[in-house]
Design a protein around this nucleic acid. Structure first.
Length: 663
RNA sequence: GGGCGCGUAGCUCAAACGGAUAGAGCAUCGGAUUUCUAAUCCGAGGGUUGCAGGUUCGAUUCCUGCCGCGCCUACCA
C-alpha cells in the first residue's frame, strides 16, 4: 500500500511541476522517509528543483502544496525548512485498506527470470559458505515470486572438474575400493561426510608425493570420456553427493527446478556451437605469438581501453596482461568458454538444448529435473529467459564480467544488460571458532578478524552439522518451556526455530560484508535474530487464541468491528502516533520487497522484519489487550495485532522462515 | 603492478538514489505493576564515520591523494 501511494504521489508532484513550469527540465522526484513520524510519512526534498526552476526551495514547495489538489490517501502536506515538502498519509484511509489487505494493481514486467544458486561441487558435504549462497538465492527467488514474477531456479553442477576427480582418486587409489564397494558406501546416510574427509586426505596425499598428481591428471581425462569405468565411478559419486546436497537444502525449504550439469555441456557440444559464433563476431582472437601463442583469447573484463580517437580504429591489440585464454593451444576449452556457451543457452541464443529427465521428487510433490544426453519426451521448458541472476561469490566477479562482455561482443547487448552477477562475500570463521574446531592457528592468524574456510583442507563447518546443533540447542529450550507437548511436536518446533535462526543469520548481513562465523552468534536466539521475530508472531497468535478469535477473519472483517471513525480516532493525534508507527511499518511490505529486488539485497527485508517485530514487542508490552475494558479500543488494538501479525508472517515467509504455533 | 571491495560505538553490523539530531544487536551497568509466556520490555554510558583535501545549500555516501585490510589477477575447474 505504501509503495502504491508513493508512486501516486511522485506522479502527481511531477504533473504539478510540469503544469506550473512548462518546458522546464526537471530532475527526478525523489521521495524519502522523514526521520520521525511527527514530520510526516513521505518527505520530498525540493533542493534539486531550485536551480532548474530558478526559485527558492521553500517557494516551490509552497507552490506544489497549494496547487497539487486532492490525492486519495494523502491527508495533508507541510512545507518544512530548509526545503522539504512533508506529506502525511490519511491514517484512517490507510488502515482500512491495510486491514482489508487491499492489493492495488501493479505493473508486472513480463518475461521469465532464471535464478541460479548453490552450485556446490558434488564431491563433499555442503558447508556454511554454501548455506549463505543458497539462502541468499532462495530468498531472492521468493522475493521475485512475491512480486509475481515467473522464476526458474537452477543449480549448476560441475561434475567433471578436478574436485570430483580428486575424490575419485581417493576411492580408487588411496582406499583402493571397487565400484561395487563405492556404490554400497554411497547409499550410506551421510555419504557426503565420508567424501569430505576423503577429499582432505587426497590433498595431503598429493602433497606427500608430487608424482601422485599424475594420477589426478589421468583421472580427470578419464572422467571426460563417458565410456570409461572411471567416468562411471565419478558419476555415481557426484550423483550421490548431489542427492545429499538436495536433501540438506530441502531441510531449509530450498528447492530447485533444474540441475544443468557440465557433463552435458560437454557431451552435447555446447561449446562447438558457441565457438563458431565467437569467432565470427570477433570476440575471440587467435594469438600468433607471445606467451599465449596458439590460444584463442578475449579481452579480460574491466580492462577495455576506451579508444576515443576515431583514427585508431585498427583492431586495438590486447596486451598479454589483458588476455584471457578461452581456448588453449592444445585445442581444449577452459571453463570460461563453457560458461559463455552455457549462458548463451540461458538466453536462448545457442540453438541447442539439454535433454531432461526427472531427478528428485520433493515430499511436497514438486519435481526437480536434471540434464542428460537423451532425455524424456515430456519435460518443462527451461532456459530461453529474459533475465538472469547468478548467485556466485565475489571472487568470481571477473569471470562473470568476462561472460557478460562476451555476450555483448556477440551483439546481444540486451541479454548482457539483463545478466546480473548477484555477488556476495564469503563466510569465514573467527579465530575463536577455528580454534574450537581444533585447527592450529599461527600467530598471524590469531590477529586476523577472520580465517577463510577450505574444503581442500577439510576445514569448515558442515551445513548439516550446524543445522543439527541449532536444532539441539532450540530443542533444549522448547523442552523446558513446553513439557506438556509430545516429543515430536517439540522437535518440529525446535526445527522451525533452528531454520529461522539460520536463515535470518545469513540474511541480516549485507552481501558485501564478509561474515565472520562464530557459533555463539549463530546459535543466539535473542536480539536481532529469527527467533525474535518468530516470537513476536507467536505472541500475537496467542492473544487471538486466548480471545477465541481467528486473527485472519478478524482482520478481513475489521471494517465491521472497528468503525472508520474509531479507526481514525485512535490513529490520529499525539497518542495515535505509536499505533500509527505500527500500521505504517505494516504497510511497507511491498515497498521493502521492491527495494530488495531493485538493489538485489535481501538484508533490507531482514532489517524490516526486525524493526516491525521490535515495534510490536514494545506495543505488546505497553498495551494489555485482553484486559482492555473499553470494547471499541480493544477491537482496535486487536485489529492492530492482526495486521502486524499478517505482515510479519508474510515477510518471514519470503525469507523462508515459518512460524511455530508456540515457542 | 593492475582490477574489485572494505575501513562507522569495546565487539558484530545498519544507514538504496548525497538530506533533517549517524541507528541496532551483543557485551557492561541499573531497572520492569507475579500480565496476552521474560526467547520480552525500559533506561544509562559508549562516535572527530581510517587520515588529508575537494565538489555544494548539505557528505558516512560523490571525486582526488595517502594509510590499513581482504579478494581476484594460471594455457586449474
Amino acid at each position: 500500500m505504501y509503495l502504491h501511494l508513493e508512486h501516486r504521489l511522485a506522479q502527481r508532484v511531477l504533473e504539478c511541476l510540469q503544469r506550473r513550469y512548462p518546458g522546464a527540465v526537471l530532475p527526478n522526484v525523489v521521495i524519502e522517509q522523514p526521520p520521525k513520524v511527527e514530520l510526516g510519512d513521505f518527505a520530498i526534498p525540493i533542493f534539486p528543483f531550485a536551480k532548474p526552476l530558478r526559485s527558492a526551495p521553500l517557494k516551490i514547495a509552497e507552490a506544489i502544496r497549494g496547487e497539487i489538489g486532492e490525492i486519495e490517501g494523502i491527508a495533508e502536506m507541510q512545507v518544512a525548512p530548509p526545503g522539504y515538502l512533508n506529506v502525511r498519509i490519511d491514517r484512517g484511509w490507510m488502515a482500512s485498506a491495510l486491514a482489508a489487505d487491499a492489493k492495488p494493481p501493479a505493473e508486472i514486467p513480463h518475461g521469465k527470470i532464471l535464478v541460479e544458486h548453490s552450485s556446490i561441487n558434488p564431491n563433499k558435504a555442503a558447508h556454511i559458505g554454501h548455506l549463505r549462497n543458497a539462502i541468499l538465492g532462495d530468498t531472492f527467488v521468493r522475493l521475485l515470486r512475491y512480486a509475481e514474477r515467473t522464476v526458474d531456479v537452477q543449480n549448476y553442477i560441475d561434475n567433471t572438474g578436478v574436485q570430483v576427480a580428486d575424490v575419485v582418486v581417493g576411492f580408487t587409489h588411496i582406499e583402493k575400493k571397487s565400484r561395487a564397494e563405492i556404490e554400497t558406501l554411497a547409499r550410506q546416510p551421510r555419504f557426503d561426510y565420508y567424501c569430505w574427509d576423503l577429499y582432505a586426505r587426497v590433498s595431503q596425499w598429493y602433497e606427500a608425493d608430487k608424482q601422485n598428481r599424475q594420477v589426478r591428471l589421468q583421472t580427470l581425462h578419464a572422467i571426460e570420456d563417458a565410456s570409461t569405468e572411471t567416468a562411471a565411478i565419478a558419476d555415481l559419486i557426484s550423483v550421490a553427493v548431489l542427492r545429499r546436497h538436495l536433501e540438506t537444502m530441502d531441510r531449509l525449504d530450498i528447492e530447485y527446478d533444474f540441475l544443468p550439469r557440465e557433463s552435458e555441456i560437454l557431451h552435447l557440444h555446447f561449446w562447438d556451437a558457441a565457438f563458431v559464433k565467437l569467432k565470427e563476431s570477433g570476440v575471440l582472437t587467435f594469438e600468433t605469438d607471445g606467451k599465449n601463442k596458439g590460444c584463442w583469447v578475449m579481452r579480460r573484463a574491466g580492462t577495455a581501453k576506451i579508444t576515443e580517437d576515431t583514427d585508431g580504429t585498427e583492431e586495438d591489440r590486447i596486451t598479454e596482461e589483458d588476455q584471457k585464454v578461452i581456448v588453449r593451444s592444445n585445442g581444449t576449452v577452459g571453463y570460461v568458454g563453457k560458461d559463455i556457451a552455457y549462458h548463451m543457452w540461458k538466453f536462448g541464443l545457442l540453438g541447442r538444448d539439454f535433454g531432461y529427465r526427472k531427478f528428485y521428487h520433493y515430499p511436497n510433490g514438486h519435481d526437480c529435473w536434471i540434464s542428460t544426453a537423451n532425455g524424456e519426451k515430456d519435460h518443462p521448458h527451461f532456459g530461453d529467459v529474459a533475465e538472469i541472476y547468478n548467485v556466485i561469490d565475489a571472487r568470481q566477479s571477473e569471470a562473470q564480467n568476462t561472460v557478460i562482455e562476451a555476450l555483448r561482443g556477440l551483439g546481444h547487448a540486451e541479454a548482457a544488460d539483463h545478466y546480473t552477477h548477484f555477488s556476495y562475500e564469503m563466510v569465514a570463521l573467527t579465530p575463536r571458532c577455528a580454534a574450537e574446531l581444533g585447527y592450529n592457528l599461527s600467530d598471524e592468524d590469531k590477529t586476523r578478524s577472520y580465517i577463510e574456510v577450505s574444503g581442500r583442507k577439510g576445514f569448515g563447518v558442515k551445513a548439516d552439522d550446524l543445522l543439527d546443533q541449532l536444532i539441539v540447542s532450540a530443542k533444549k529450550e522448547v523442552d523446558s518451556r513446553h513439557p506438556q507437548l509430545t516429543d515430536s511436536e517439540r522437535q518440529e518446533i525446535a526445527t522451525q526455530i533452528a531454520i529461522g535462526a539460520l536463515r535470518f543469520f545469513m540474511l541480516k548481513y549485507t552481501k558485501q560484508s564478509v561474515i565472520a562465523f562464530d557459533f555463539k552468534e549463530a546459535l543466539s536466539f535473542e536480539g536481532e535474530t529469527g527467533p525474535y521475530a518468530q516470537y513476536a508472531v507467536v505472541r500475537a497468535t496467542s492473544i487471538f487464541r486466548k480471545a477465541g478469535v481467528d486473527p485472519d477473519t478478524f482482520c478481513k472483517d475489521a471494517a465491521g468491528r472497528v468503525s472508520a471513525a474509531d479507526q481514525s480516532n485512535y490513529l490520529n493525534g499525539e497518542s495515535g502516533n505509536e499505533f500509527w508507527e505500527l500500521w505504517l511499518a505494516s504497510s511497507k511490505t511491498s515497498y521493502v520487497i521492491d527495494k530488495c529486488i531493485a538493489t538485489t539485497e535481501p538484508a533490507h527485508l531482514a532489517k524490516h522484519v526486525f524493526q516491525l517485530a521490535q515495534l510490536f514487542n514494545t506495543f505488546y508490552h505497553r498495551h494489555p489487550i485482553l484486559s482492555e475494558p473499553d470494547d471499541k479500543r480493544k477491537r482496535f488494538l486487536l485489529a492492530t495485532v492482526a495486521v502486524v501479525r499478517r505482515e510479519l508472517i508474510r515477510c518471514l515467509a519470503v525469507m523462508g522462515i515459518a512460524v511455530p504455533p508456540v515457542m
